[in-house]
Simulated scan of single mutants.
Amino acid sequence: MPFLIALLGIAGAVIFWMYRARDAANAASDLADMAGDVVSAARRFGFRRRYNTHPVDSIEDADLAVGGLGVAFLQLGGTPTAEQRAALLISLQSQLGLDREKAEELDVLGQWFVNECNGPAPAVSRLSKRLFKLSGAEQFETVIGVAGDVGAANGGELSDQQRDALGDIKNAFRIR
């Protein structure tokens, strides 16, 4: 009888570790798919990362910076809901004149830029400075339009962090 119990225990342990290994493989596959999405979106926008520079400093297309700012601004309001994400995509489409697929790619790249900046607050500062270098003050209205649409999706109320971010954006664009 003890032999049978030991055999069942070993079989249970083997099954447990097989399921854990399968779950780990699925998680690794999901991460690889996300990385592939970022790479393919970057290629479609013509983004090329320069070595020994921060990814935000490699941005040459103003739309990428606006998309990153939209994502960072959205994340400053807390964990975004599906409705808020949809509002961001609609705003990017209308403000930048993009189709749905390109707006989704901007969202993916924007999330990557925010991660590379170590959070949404530093991303707002860095992306707004880069956008000002790329296009001067002409993109300010676009950024404010995206921020307004994101705020409207949140019931029209901005968080304290989002209000601070608007101040950072105005400072980067040298608007007093």
Rank of each mutant, 00 (worst) to 15 (best):
R49F: 15
R85W: 15
E138R: 10
L88I: 08
F73I: 00
M1L: 09
G46M: 01
R126A: 03
Q139R: 08
S135D: 13
R163F: 13
A147H: 03
Q84E: 13
G119Y: 14
P122F: 06
R85H: 13
V39F: 15
S40H: 10
E116D: 03
A28W: 07
V146E: 07
L96W: 07
A121F: 13
G151Y: 05
F16C: 03
E60L: 07
V146G: 03
L4T: 09
K170P: 07
D160E: 14
D164G: 14
A6R: 12
V39M: 13
S125P: 10
A172C: 08
P55L: 04
G167Y: 05
M18S: 15
R174G: 11
E104Y: 10
D99T: 02
S91K: 00
G70D: 05
L109I: 06
A32C: 07
G78L: 06
L89E: 14
L69E: 02
L31F: 10
R49A: 15
G12I: 01
D164P: 07
Q161E: 12
V38D: 06
E104G: 07
I175Y: 14
L158D: 13
Q93P: 15
R176N: 11
V124W: 09
G77A: 14
C117W: 09
E83A: 11
D61N: 05
A27W: 12
L106I: 02
K133I: 04
R20T: 09
D149Y: 14
S159T: 05
S29I: 02
L64H: 02
G46A: 04
R130M: 06
V150I: 05
F45C: 02
E101T: 09
L92Q: 03
A21E: 15
A172Q: 02
G77Q: 08
A121Y: 12
S125V: 07
G9Y: 12
F47E: 10
A35M: 05
E60I: 09
N26R: 06
A28C: 03
G77I: 02
L166P: 11
V124D: 05
L7A: 10
M34F: 15
I175R: 09
G97D: 03
V56K: 01
I144E: 13
R20L: 10
L89F: 15
G70S: 03
S125G: 15
A41K: 00
G167C: 01
E101W: 13
G167A: 08
I10M: 06
L7E: 15
S58H: 00
A11Q: 07
G155M: 02
V146C: 01
V56D: 01
W112V: 00
D164N: 14
T81N: 10
I59D: 01
A153Q: 00
R43C: 08
G12F: 08
R176G: 14
S58F: 00
E157A: 08
G167F: 10
F132A: 01
M18D: 12
A87K: 00
P122L: 00
D30C: 12
S91C: 03
Q93W: 14
G78E: 13
V38I: 14
M18F: 10
L127P: 05
V143E: 02
G151M: 05
V66W: 11
L88Q: 01
F3D: 15
K133D: 15
V38H: 09
I59F: 03
L127N: 03
G97L: 00
N115I: 04
D63C: 11
P55W: 07
I15T: 08
A137G: 14
I169D: 04
L8N: 05
